[in-house]
């Protein structure tokens, strides 16, 4: 099993990336929630929302960062949860969470593209 384990340096960098992305998420989630509440409270229609977001570089940059942080943060946490809960470790797990990361990134960036570009 040891031959299929990530190097210690990679393990540490994953942990660091998860902490760093958590810090980014803490801010992004607050901004995102505030935006939702604003939109709902003011009764904005889908068309009105799209009118404000389309072509807005600031919102595009913000949501790109948000999606990137999610795609980094969630799979690394999932890797630990699966290892601790199901004793699942090694290459198959690492490939699985990488696939989760790519899927999240794909879905997220597709949504960013649809709403902002």
């Amino acid at each position: 099993m040891s031959d299929e384990r990530l190097s210690v340096r990679t393990q540490v960098l994953l942990w660091t990336a998860q902490r760093a992305s958590a810090a980014v998420l803490a801010i992004c989630v607050v901004v995102h929630l505030a935006t939702i509440i604003y939109a709902v409270r003011n009764g904005l229609s889908a068309a009105e929302i799209l009118g404000r977001t389309r072509g807005n570089a600031a919102w595009a940059a913000f949501y790109t960062l948000f999606v990137a942080a999610i795609a980094v943060h969630a799979p690394i946490g999932l890797r630990t949860i699966l290892a601790e809960t199901f004793s699942w470790r090694g290459r198959a797990l690492d490939i699985t969470v990488l696939a989760v990361a790519l899927t999240l990134a794909m879905w997220g960036f597709r949504a960013v593209y649809a709403v902002l570009i």
Partner: peptide, 12 residues
């Protein structure tokens, strides 16, 4: 440091 790092070490 290498011995105490990573999934079986302090980061767990």
């Amino acid at each position: 440091l290498a011995a105490v790092a990573g999934d079986a070490g302090c980061h767990a």
